[in-house]
Design a protein around this nucleic acid. Sequence first.
DNA 1: TATTGTTATACTCTATAACTATA
DNA 2: TATAGTTATAGAGTATAACAATA
Lengths: 156, 156
Amino acid sequence: MAALQGSPSDGPDPGPDPEGDGVGRLRTAVLVLGRRLRHQASGDALSATEMAVFGRVHRDGPLTPGQLARAEHVQPPSMTRIVERLVSGGYLERNPHPDDGRQHLLSVSEVGAKFIEETRFRRTQWLAAHLDQLSESDRSTIHAALPALQRLADLP
Amino acid sequence: MAALQGSPSDGPDPGPDPEGDGVGRLRTAVLVLGRRLRHQASGDALSATEMAVFGRVHRDGPLTPGQLARAEHVQPPSMTRIVERLVSGGYLERNPHPDDGRQHLLSVSEVGAKFIEETRFRRTQWLAAHLDQLSESDRSTIHAALPALQRLADLP
DNA sequence: TATTGTTATACTCTATAACTATA
DNA sequence: TATAGTTATAGAGTATAACAATA
């Protein structure tokens, strides 16, 4: 079916804005946001991706590297490096897996927990600061779309 | 004010999911989507960013490299390389600027226009194909959030 | 033998700095 | 002198391939 507005086969009137369809605009918005997210994070202690992984461990409890790789849709070697930086930076801790000697369980360290409290308080993150500049209506619309965006991102 | 759900100062009840706030989830969704968009595009003729720039020229008419760089939030040298590939691939054409010898105007070539028609018909793009797998309700929610996401991406 | 994770390596994207040409 | 664009170079992020350890 149509994806975010009419597809070519929907009828005789594709509208006045042929390629200005939702797909193109969504792609652009995602790419620009991601680009800015990464770049603005470069002065921070953690990169955007590191922050995402760190936040996920904090949210979803102890996880193995493999679980994290699947959740973030990166390959295992990429996650190895991300986790390596987070562990050597003191944000995450590696604990042995109770049942399986090959795996580890990653959890937020004490230092890491304190770091989250600080950054939540300071609100220095680019995304949080810029969301605050939107109208209340824009924020709630984005908030409403979040589950759908997550489902889109996690589709096989 | 609060950004996508309660901030720490909103009251005594931060909810059961401290860091599972909208900011973190939005960051993750954007990063994962961008990652998959880039990766899945690697088999295509154009990368995700190239497609975004190409689509913008198609949408918004002849543009200069500088205008494109500002619109996509990349630095001018980055846009130079993106445009270079699109021009040498035959998708875009460089035309002299009527008033200013330093600038060029980029427009979609005949081959480029045909390419857009084909890909719209084939729907091979990762994003379009996956949007089609969402429910109608999810698609319309995302569609409704698109202007807000664009404003967020374009904030100074 | 299959799975989890790591090491080694390479590629893409994008940035900063320095330069050229035009205004 | 200021602006638009390009060239040269470097860094971050992520992938694939090969390997080690455990199930």
